[in-house]
Design a protein around this nucleic acid. Sequence first.
DNA 1: CTGAAAGCGCTTACAG
DNA 2: CTGAAAGCGCTTACAG
Lengths: 326, 326
Amino acid sequence: VTPRITINDIARAAGYSKTAVSFAFNDPSRISHVARGKILRAAEELGYVPDPVARNLSRRTLGTIGFLIPEIIPLAFQNPYVFQMMIGIGEVCRREGLSLTVVPPRRGCVLSAVRDAAVDGLVTMGLQPEAQVVQLIQRRKLPFVVLDGVAPDGVPSIVSNDEEVSFQAMRHVLARGHRRVAVLSFADERHENEEAYSGIRDIRLAGYFRALDEAGVRRRDVSVIPALPSLDGGRAGMDALLQLDTCPTAVVSMSDVAAIGAMSRLQSLGYEIPQTMSFVGFDDIPEAVIIAPKLTTVAQPGYEKGVRAGELLTALMHGKSTPDRV
Amino acid sequence: VTPRITINDIARAAGYSKTAVSFAFNDPSRISHVARGKILRAAEELGYVPDPVARNLSRRTLGTIGFLIPEIIPLAFQNPYVFQMMIGIGEVCRREGLSLTVVPPRRGCVLSAVRDAAVDGLVTMGLQPEAQVVQLIQRRKLPFVVLDGVAPDGVPSIVSNDEEVSFQAMRHVLARGHRRVAVLSFADERHENEEAYSGIRDIRLAGYFRALDEAGVRRRDVSVIPALPSLDGGRAGMDALLQLDTCPTAVVSMSDVAAIGAMSRLQSLGYEIPQTMSFVGFDDIPEAVIIAPKLTTVAQPGYEKGVRAGELLTALMHGKSTPDRV
DNA sequence: CTGAAAGCGCTTACAG
DNA sequence: CTGAAAGCGCTTACAG
């Protein structure tokens, strides 16, 4: 196989120094027209393209930001809401001419993924403050912002007021007279990185329970069913629900996608919605509007939050100070 | 600000050579237990993390593959099908311990995005053979596979038999008696990188027209409406459709997402589906099943194709030979 | 305008 | 087991 063509080859072929070749590509004004011509011609002939990795090392900047997700890609992105956030970050990448690297756990390990991530900065999804992950990111001196998670001190984070929003959602259900309510929570079993979700989950549960307490519904009468935020997660959640002694009349889900999955399962068993059960989701994913008009949902602007996260991160990368919490 | 801590600092602090430090992290068996202990302790104290970029340059491998998309992220990913493909690639990344970099055009330019992409290989979406992009990728000696595009000779590609599938889809519509048919094609205006889509678009059109010819429907009686593969694209397409002199009774779309957008638009105007118009999509995105039961669609397993593309690419990266076409 | 040289922070034969 | 040294392929003061 032909060996890689480097800046040295071009310098030799064109009869100039490496410096000149570098300038020809990066700062043409610093060399003569003639030199530039010869160099570019040589590069063209030999099919030379400057190696981005070497350039990155020299420049100490990579032109890419990372989106750290607590799950593997096929799982995390089954939630359209997560996807929306990524698109929002992508929008900022577009503006700034950056690319976007998705950083899932590597071989099941978030730490090693973070250790090896070749990025200029990181948007992390659902991080807990005590995690070693935070320490590692900080050691690497990577600028980062937390999206939908509890951020350590001094780290900007983008969060909705999940407690209040959840409170309102549950209140809405109770106001309609429902007293037998089930919650589709985030999955907490079967995953080692359970901590990734536990932060928001607990906050939302708190909101739900505040409304339940207010209405005088006893906590033990509320079933909290763990479900992955995906269609299949919702389907499985519904199966679990149907096993309960007393079926709820309303289901409050922490994600639209799980709610939709649950609805589809119920429907496929021949039950009518909302006659059999009412559903309230979370996120307001675009699909929900068209798909599931019978799904009430709580807005959670994933796209906008992604944009905001991207903006905060790039501000940080440019050395600007940023507000802590948005 | 504190300067970055490097391998040199650790070597000095631990009283060993850089070599030893490197081994402590990468190949502990090659140094003594004592040395390893001291080195790791020093690293711990100083908060040292090996720089992945420098490591990448030395190792000549990055541990990441790129997904080259012809549009900016917010646009390209409005199509769930594209997303499904990405998830498929992500699944292979998981298996192989790689990360995934999304590579959209940088500042509107695909070429410069490819030039700077720090990846070990590339899955390109919808590439045309004549593009300079191919030449650039080859110059960079990047392994790559083409997903949903017409590949140059010797480059593996993953394509469905789009012509045949399109033929069947249209035939299905015609068999139901429809004679006034509209096609929601891929957008071809307003974008400079129109070439990215034109390949598959033309192939699918050919399939549609073959069926139309067979049924004796004149080509001029079929309106081909360009639409971006997104909900909004479909809505706009429907608006355009409604301007036509004679409204079609069936709409055949090149993407589910545009079909759904069009349906939602029509519905919001108070028309009934499928009484007013029938819809046939393309892709079989998971959402469609639940959302739009009135949408007939043609399967196009995005996830599976993504997986296959990832597999081919990693095989290529490992130096294996691969089949040209899948 | 031009180039020798140091530097980016690692890895890895190679010799001891 | 250990380390000096070359090398990965660029960029960029600096001096001329």
